[in-house]
Design a protein around this nucleic acid. Structure first.
Lengths: 169, 169
DNA sequence: TCGCAAGCTCACGTCAACGTAAGGATTGGA
DNA sequence: TCCAATCCTTACGTTGACGTGAGCTTGCGA
């Protein structure tokens, strides 16, 4: 706690330098605010954009400061969550999270009122595939972890039993 | 698949250059065999030894080739399992896996017939603490993964529903 | 209008976790 | 005995995932 403690945990605060709502697009956030919200650093966000894990954050401000919508914040949250829980590389995450892109493409198409049913169905099925792939991974990991947990529990039982033996025997 | 595909998956084979049982100590394995068994490389095993994650593999052959017992292979398996499932650094693993050391100390003491009950109890309680720490971590991870799984399941449901709507509506 | 915190773009630094190559010693089978 | 495969140590290279300035521009509260 010598410095200013950059804060690794997500901050519930929203306003960065005071009260700041309704910037250019509705509810746009700057990179520093986003970083605090999700518990990371601006550099990391830029890096994720650099390697194509996040889109290029268009549009920016009249200058060239990045602006983020709530959706993009959610996307970032997903990225970090999958990264932490599945322990996969960012490269793998790029393909794994293609689902989100399909989903947001669906939303986008919905908003524009484009009602090409075939195209929508295609996008939905694509999204479905990706989600199923994610599920497979998550469930495989869950199975492994559950086995590990069981083994640890029985190890704990055995140890407790031995201690008990020593105490009474 | 252009090169020789070093083989990342654990091999069920045991004999390395043919049939090799009963070397110096009973059932001793050489580093290459161990690597194949657990699905890694000799370099990695040496590295783990170098940073103190594995003990120094004593004794060696009359030359200075490392020899491993089944116990040491199991230890390595544990290391890799925790690493993959918990996604922690090797440094953290060093403290986290101290449990195994306590447990093997107990076994060691048992084999030697040393029946200092107090010492044994101490070791057992130490092992218990470590196992409980491991369990906490595993269970926390399990909880997070379970939530993620549920969310993915409901996302899947929603997508399927929409596809169905498109099909019949 | 001014000032300063926060952003931007290079570009180099870093740290963990190994890979890889060099040069030589060991092993176990033919 | 001999030799190809394996192993040894030492040391430098690499890759992913950011950290850390430098030098400059922007945003915004006083």
């Amino acid at each position: 706690m010598t410095k200013t403690t950059p804060g690794l945990r997500p901050q519930p605060a929203i306003g960065s330098t005071g009260a700041a709502d309704a910037l250019s697009p509705a509810g746009a956030l700057r990179i520093g605010d986003v970083a605090k919200l999700v518990g990371t650093t601006p550099r990391t966000i830029r890096y994720y954009e650099e390697i194509g894990l996040l889109q290029e954050s268009l549009p920016r401000t009249s200058g060239s400061h990045r602006l983020y919508s709530e959706e993009e914040v959610d996307r970032l949250r997903e990225v970090m969550r999958f990264k932490q829980l599945l322990g996969v590389s960012l490269e793998q995450l790029k393909t794994l999270l293609a689902a989100e892109e399909a989903r947001s493409a669906v939303k986008e198409q919905l908003r524009r009122g484009g009602v090409d049913a075939n195209r929508r169905k295609g996008l939905l099925e694509e999204a479905l595939e990706h989600v199923e792939k994610q599920l497979e991974l998550v469930q495989a990991r869950l199975a492994d972890l559950t086995r590990l947990q069981e083994e640890l529990c029985s190890a704990r039982r055995r140890i407790r039993c031995r201690i008990e033996e020593l105490r009474s025997g």
